[in-house]
Structures are given as structure tokens and as C-alpha cells.
Design a protein around this nucleic acid. Structure first.
Lengths: 350, 350
DNA sequence: CTGAAAGCGCTTACAG
DNA sequence: CTGAAAGCGCTTACAG
């Protein structure tokens, strides 16, 4: 390990003191132009790179953001987090992630792991119900700002950036109602997280607005949020009697699972059953009948999250924000709606 | 920001010196059992957490791994990296990632960004052709080990963990040959990276083994690695005359794009055209005719990558490794092969 | 505008 | 087995 060049070494080489070198490097005001130029030139020439670890120790700030998101291999989250990372990096923050999120204990351990590494702020997707908010109190005490992404926990002093999930659930259900459906099922994931609860609430709202009854037996829990869970749910849907004529899936992967089973069982979409998803994942075009879905602004969600947490870090005074980004309807074929020419259809659908 | 409790504070409280406290905390040998117990108890009670930044500065090691992967929102990479993260975290390393990889300059900037933060090792997926290996020399000089994941760059002193891509390309093509196909197209992504080149080489090998001619016009470049590129390629495939009866796609997303266009154009899979992918992404079951594909061991790939880079970090002496993980054939429906009962078919296919 | 001093919180020889 | 000292590389008042 060739020992790297430090400010002290630069100072010696130039016959200056190291505070002077430091100030030149950091672009501090009180310094002679010539001196600064000499320092910068030498630094460049010698391949000087600041040791950020030392800097962090001295400053008590690391310019890093901890992220705790149970890594779900859906392109939805990948896209959101990609945009988060990009934005953070643009703003000179780096991202440290921790993915152990099977249980509340693991989540707490992950948070601790990151806090020990002195992250300046924390972004998390709370996927578990919890009774004990102790860890969040600690964070508040330490002055580490927290941002909930996607879902939120009530009663925690933190910001939220996510989707208008009530509106999303409502939009999906209403689309079906407008197409004449009366008996509409809802495929839920797990209950208890805000996203699930709020999308369901939106669905109910749409029913109410249309004077349709809310029938609890039409809400089928899938036990999770992935394709496989959607497949399970599909089987349950087929056992319902009378059978619903349409399905709102809580998210796209669940809709994919439902569609996959329907296709193999010969239940035609949309003729025999209409289907709406929620997310707007590009994979939706792969289905025999491309998925109509609620399109979430994934890019914006990631970027806003980065901007908000950085704002919180740099601007301690600010109040927590609660930001719900609006969705759009992405009409493809799985509900049988007529495709108008001005409708969004980014990919060839034949 | 409540100032946190330090070793010095603990020492004062206990009437000990801070080196003693430090040794107790680190489980060093020469220390009285009673003293250690007292220290540990006090640390626990006071909620002491070590400042890892300070430790890193003193040690010159951060226990972190830098990752530079152009974040592609394919579940393939998400799954690989998830497993990488998990394994790294299990082994007490944390992962810092940098996703600016549009050009060689950006890649170099990303690497520098991470090196300034004193990562102990670097994992990267080289997606660009490059002429200038300067940055890798620097890394070697600094003693920072490098691991290429998925693709590799020839002539760089680094380890590689990836797939047996030659075998994979060969396996895909051979599957089609065994089903009687003679005119088999290859959908390439971009040329120049080792994965693409080696899969193509495998395809050629299979042709040669079957005494089939290699016809360059059957190799169609898609211009990228995503679904959209596959769609472009599909259009070109349909213009070929005589039309091939089968297609090897360089990866699954390309195959998805091809399948999507074929479906909308009424080209039936597998009757009119057989199709093989490469990756084994679960989304393959969504297609009207579920995709037969080369199944890559994504979990293992991520875990091995973590193990190898950590080994390199902790064990400087070791030689670079070159590890090609074997693939399997995942036979579904897109080639028309008879599904034997012992064939892999993790999801219901009807 | 520049320099001498102290400190961030940890680790590590070196004495006792 | 325990303590006094110096150092990791940077930053930041405080003097001059």
C-alpha cells in the first residue's frame, strides 16, 4: 500500500503550513490567489485526493445517507432507488445500504449498523408492523433525520415521500367501474403497511362513490407482494362465487401472478376478467394481454426522496414533509378499454 | 445532536484509562476478566456504540466494499447484488455503491469517489470498452483489490466471478439444434464486452459441433440489453430471408422484447419461431409462451463475488481468481421441447 | 493572508 | 494486566 499523499506532505513540499494548504484546497476565502494556485497545481500534479474518512471524523459529518430497504427484486424499486442514488451522488452524497429486513429486530440492527457508521440521514421503507418505536426516538435524539419511502409509520417524527396511494387505488377501481364492472375484487398483499391499507381505502372510496356495496369476501389477501403470491391469489379468485368480473391488484407483480394463472387456466383477460395493476412496471407489456395499471412516477419518487433527505440533513430546522406524488392511469389492454390515440402507450402493442 | 458517549467517557466513569477500555471492548487478550466485564456492562448500560469512522481512520481500513455497476433495472442484477449485499453484510462489510457509468470518464469518477472514501476493495461490472487502464494501475499501486463481476477486462490485474458464458451460449444453441433447427439467429446486444463476445463464441461452437455453417447475417445486434432493444431486433429478424426458424437471444430482456413483438405481429412461438433466452429471470413465465432459457446461478454469483473480494481484502497475498459458474438449461415452452417431469419448472405452466 | 495548536474518537506500540 | 503517549489526516478557532 503506497502511502498516499496528504495535506501535510503537500505543505512540506511547498514550504507552507498545512492549514494554508487545507484552506486552499477547500476554497476558503482568506487566501492569496497565487498561493492557492500553487497549492492546487501541486495537488493536481501529485495526484492528491482528500481522505474523506479523516474529514468525516473532524467534521462529525460523513455526507452519507443510510438506506434500509428490504431489497425486493422488482424493477419498480430498482428504478426508484437508481434515481435516488443518482440524485444523491449528484449532490455529493453517497449511499450506504443495509438489506437485512426480515424482522423488526433485523431492521433495528441494520439501522444501528448504519448509525455506527455515522450516516447523516436515514431512508427506509417500513415493511413491518411495529409496536416499539425506541430506535426512532434514538435517531431523533441524535439528530439523525429519517425519511420514509413508499410506506410510512404513523407516530414517528419523520418525513414521507411516496405515492398518492388512496388516489391510486381509487383510480384503478374507478377505471373498472366506468367500463361497467360491478363486482370487483381486490387482491391485497399483506395488511398493516400504509401502502396496502391506503390502496384498499381508495378502492372502497371508488365503490362508495359509485354506490356499489363493499363486499369483504372480494378482498383476497395474497400473503405477500410477489408474482408467486399473485398466483396464489388467482386460485382463490377463481373459487369466488359468483365470480367477480374484474380485479384490482394491489401492485403489478401480484397482477402478473394473477394474469399468469388466468392465462394457463384459460380465463381470458379482459373478456372473462378485467385486471388492473399498480406500479407501471415495463414488464406489463409481456403479458398476452398487456397490463392496464396505475403508473407511479418512479423516477420522481427516487429523486424527491434524495432531495428531501438532503434538505433535512443540511437544514435541520425544517419540519417533516409529507409528500404524495400523483399517479396516472396507464391504459393498455387488460381491461378492455378502448385505446384512444392520446392515451399513454409507450411501447408497441400491435 | 446529543454528543455520543466515547471510550474516553467510559474510562472516566469507570476510573480506568481509555486504552484499557478499548482493549476490553475489542476483546484483546491481556486484560483482567473482572475489568472486561465491568467495561462491557457499562458500555451496554450507557448505550455505547463505537464510532466506526474514527476506527477507520486509525486503522486505515474501512471494512467497506465499493461497487460500480451501471444499475440496470433487471431482476437479474437486482438478485445478484442482493445476494452480494447479504453476504457482505453477514461478513461485517458494508457496501457503498456508485452508479454513474455512462462513459469511461464517469466510471473512473465513480471509482475515484469510492477510493477517496477508502473502500477496502472494489467490485465492478465493466460495461464499456476502454483503452486506458490507468485507473486500474492506480488501484493496484494502492493495494486495493478489484473484482470484475459478470464481465471482465482483459489485461487488468483483477479477479473475475461470473458465468460460464461460452458454455451458456453453446447450451442455448445446442438445445435448438437438438430440436431440429438448422437456421438459428443470434440476437446480440452491444459488442466488445466479454459476456456478449463469449456467448456468441459459444453459439458458434455449437454450430461447428453440429457441422452447421456460421452465417454472419444471422447475428443481429440489438444496440443494447433491454426489452426495447429486443423489440428493435425482432423487427430485423422478421426481415431476414429466408427467415430463421429459431433465435438465441443474448439475454432474457432481449428475448422478452423479441417475444413481445412476435406476439403482437402474430408470429407464433414456438411454432413459427423458437426462442431461447439467457439469465433465467422469473418474468419469463409471463410470456404467452413461457421462455426457455439458460438459467444462471444468480444467488451464487452474488455470494461468491462477496466471498472472493473479501478474501482478497483480508488476504493480500492471494492470486486473482477466475471463476466461471455453470449454467443450467431451464426448459419451458418457447422452443417446443417436450417437458419431461424431471425438468426444472419452478412455476405452474398449466 | 499565514502559521502554531488542539481536537475529532479510535488504535497501537512502548513502558511499567 | 494497566497506563501515558503518539498518531491516523483532516478542520477550526485563535494569534500574528
Amino acid at each position: 500500500m503506497a502511502d498516499s499523499i496528504t495535506q501535510r506532505r503537500l505543505a512540506e513540499l511547498l514550504g507552507l503550513s498545512f492549514p494554508t494548504v487545507n484552506r486552499a484546497l477547500n476554497g476558503c476565502p482568506g487566501i492569496h490567489k497565487r498561493t492557492r494556485a500553487r497549492v492546487l497545481e501541486a495537488a493536481e500534479r501529485m495526484g492528491y485526493h482528500k481522505n474523506i474518512v479523516a474529514r468525516s471524523l473532524a467534521l462529525g459529518r460523513t455526507h452519507s445517507i443510510g438506506v434500509v430497504i428490504g431489497a425486493i427484486p422488482h424493477s419498480f424499486w430498482t428504478t426508484v432507488m437508481q434515481n435516488f442514488d443518482w440524485r444523491a451522488q449528484q449532490r455529493k452524497y453517497y449511499v450506504v445500504s443495509s438489506h437485512s429486513t426480515e424482522s423488526n429486530e433485523q431492521v433495528d440492527a441494520s439501522i444501528r449498523f448504519l448509525v455506527d457508521r455515522q450516516v447523516d440521514g436515514l431512508v427506509m421503507h417500513p415493511s413491518h408492523l411495529r409496536r416499539d418505536f425506541g430506535i426512532f426516538r434514538e435517531l431523533e435524539q441524535k439528530g439523525i433525520p429519517v425519511l420514509f419511502l413508499g410506506s410510512f409509520l404513523q407516530g414517528v417524527h419523520a418525513s414521507f415521500v411516496g405515492l398518492d396511494d388512496i388516489g391510486g387505488g381509487r383510480m384503478a377501481c374507478r377505471h373498472l367501474i366506468e367500463l361497467g364492472h360491478r363486482r370487483i375484487a381486490f387482491v391485497a398483499g399483506l395488511f398493516g403497511d400504509s401502502t396496502a391499507d391506503r390502496r384498499l381505502a381508495g378502492y372502497r372510496e371508488a365503490l362508495r362513490e359509485a354506490d356499489l356495496p363493499y363486499d369483504e369476501t372480494l378482498v383476497v389477501p395474497a400473503g405477500g407482494y410477489c408474482l408467486e403470491h399473485g398466483q396464489q391469489a388467482a386460485l382463490k379468485l377463481l373459487e369466488l362465487s359468483p365470480r367477480p368480473s374484474a380485479v384490482v391488484a394491489m401492485n403489478d407483480p401480484l397482477a402478473f401472478g394473477v394474469a399468469q394463472i388466468f392465462w394457463t387456466k384459460g380465463v381470458r383477460i379482459p373478456q372473462d376478467m378485467a385486471l388492473v395493476g399498480n406500479a407501471g412496471m415495463p414488464e406489463g407489456v409481456l403479458l398476452p394481454s398487456p397490463l392496464t395499471t396505475v403508473l407511479a412516477p418512479m423516477e420522481k419518487m427516487g429523486q424527491r426522496a434524495a432531495d428531501v433527505i438532503i434538505e433535512m440533513i443540511e437544514n435541520k430546522r425544517s419540519e417533516p414533509v409529507f409528500e404524495e406524488l400523483p399517479n396516472e392511469m396507464l391504459v393498455r389492454k387488460s381491461c378492455g378499454a378502448k385505446l384512444e390515440s392520446n392515451q399513454i402507450s409507450p411501447l408497441p402493442n400491435g
